[in-house]
Simulated assay, not measured.
Amino acid sequence: MTATPEELLYTPSHEWIRDNGDGTVTMGITDHAQDQLGDVVFVELPEEEQTIAKGEELAVVESVKSASDIYAPVSGVVESTNEALEDAPETVNEHCYGDGWMVKIKLENPDELSELLSADRYQQMVADEA
């Protein structure tokens, strides 16, 4: 398993969140999630400017094994989506914490970030699931 970046925040449903420091966050799925999914063949992303609520379905990732819903870790407005994933969904497998990001969200409530997991807590949760 790839190292879990310390600077990111995580959800129990295996999404990662990078606080961009400007009222926005970048989000994707974790290395553990992409590993469990297998080879990603399609990513359905939300519309830009779409308002989302924390916990709401945000995207769908389809792999050779299954399709999985991706949930919004925070409430806000979708500022941008990673359109490169339309032509290269495998980027989620290859660079999940980098070029495989999925959406950027303008935060509605920055306090929601404090409810997310640190890298250590996320790693412990994954270890407990094994």
Rank of each mutant, 00 (worst) to 15 (best):
E83F: 07
D111F: 03
E15D: 13
T81H: 02
T26W: 03
A67L: 10
V78F: 00
D87Y: 04
Y122I: 04
P5L: 06
T24S: 14
A67F: 14
A3M: 15
S66L: 11
E56V: 02
K54F: 05
H32D: 11
T51F: 01
E86F: 10
Q34M: 03
D69A: 13
T11M: 05
N20H: 09
Q34H: 06
D87W: 05
V103T: 10
L45G: 00
A88C: 00
Q36S: 15
E115Q: 14
F42Y: 11
F42C: 03
G38L: 01
A130W: 06
L45D: 03
E7N: 10
E90G: 12
P46F: 01
V74A: 05
E112S: 08
M125S: 08
M1T: 15
P46L: 02
E56Y: 01
V78L: 02
E112I: 06
S13L: 00
E79P: 00
P89E: 11
A3C: 03
T11V: 08
E57P: 11
N82D: 13
E62Y: 08
I17V: 15
R121C: 01
R18D: 08
I29T: 00
S114L: 03
L113E: 11
N82R: 09
S66R: 10
T51Y: 01
A53V: 14
W16I: 14
D19A: 12
Q50A: 15
K65L: 12
D39G: 08
A53G: 14
D19N: 15
A130C: 01
M102Y: 06
S118Y: 12
G23S: 06
V41W: 04
Y10K: 12
A127I: 06
V78D: 01
G76T: 09
M125H: 05
G23P: 02
N82V: 15
T11C: 05
W101H: 05
D120G: 06
E129P: 02
D35R: 13
N93M: 09
W16A: 13
Q124T: 08
N109A: 15
Y10C: 12
R121G: 02
L85H: 04
Y10A: 11
E112V: 07
I105M: 05
G98Q: 10
V25R: 02
S13I: 00
G23C: 07
T4C: 14
A33V: 05
M102L: 13
N82Q: 15
E94H: 07
S66M: 11
E7F: 15
D35G: 14
D31N: 13
P110Y: 08
D19S: 13
A127M: 09
D39Q: 12
V40E: 02
V60C: 03
A3G: 15
L107N: 04
K65C: 10
N20C: 09
D39W: 08
V64S: 08
S75C: 11
C96K: 01
L45F: 08
V64Q: 07
